[in-house]
């Protein structure tokens, strides 16, 4: 009996039954856990450091004593966090629609997800701008640097996710994502949900835990 060259979804068979693309995305997300773990830990270590420190060579480095926690407006950040959570809901609706071959509905939910993600990014830009106006720049002190690096990296991930959503919508509108390739939408969704998961950690550890 001949071995099937491809399965119903157009993929060559794999031993695990998981497509290489999906497995690759999960491996990537597992490694991202380590990267964000490092950034969160760095913030955790530096968040109480004073503005002025002494270098290992004994040189005094003067910096601002404004810490990120002095400027947090948790009411505003709660709203943006809720928006990102809502975007995970719309993303999962998009994946479900793709599996049901409802491509127009899928594009609608993907577009909604992109809009919610853009609102989150807008909120982050507003927050950063406010912090800078209050006198906490990227190099004001090590706590500020760690904060901007962590949340900035997360914002960059959200921005890349929005681009992925828009590209997926454009490809689907041109008919380049047929039902057989609906897994592509699921893989984009995995990335988006991961971004949400990371924010769940950042919001609690950075903004809420004193």
């Amino acid at each position: 009996m001949p071995v099937a060259a491809v399965d119903d979804h157009g993929h060559p068979p794999t031993n695990t039954g998981i497509s290489n693309e999906k497995l690759g995305m999960w491996v990537f997300l597992g490694s991202e856990c380590l990267m964000f773990g490092g950034l969160i830990s760095t913030y955790f270590l530096y968040k109480n450091r004073p503005g002025s420190i002494v270098s290992v060579r004994g040189r005094e480095i003067t910096g601002s004593d404004i810490r990120p926690s002095d400027l947090f407006a948790n009411g505003f950040t709660s709203v943006t966090s809720f928006i990102l959570l809502a975007s995970s809901l719309t993303m999962v609706f998009a994946v479900a629609a793709a599996k049901r071959n409802e491509m127009a509905r899928m594009r609608y939910w993907l577009g909604t997800t992109a809009v919610l993600g853009s609102l989150f990014i807008g909120g982050q830009v507003y927050e950063f701008t406010t912090f800078v106006r209050e006198g906490m720049g990227y190099t004001s002190n090590v706590a500020a640097s760690a904060f901007y690096t962590l949340t900035g990296f997360h914002g960059a991930h959200v921005t890349i996710g929005i681009l992925m959503l828009l590209i997926t919508i454009a490809m689907s509108a041109r008919g380049r994502i047929p039902h057989a390739k609906a897994e592509a939408v699921e893989i984009v969704g995995l990335y988006w949900h991961f971004v949400d998961v990371v924010w769940i950690l950042v919001f609690t550890i950075v903004y809420l835990i004193k």
Partner: peptide, 9 residues
Amino acid sequence: VGATHAHHD
């Protein structure tokens, strides 16, 4: 092989 390739999506 094809039989074991049950997509979990």
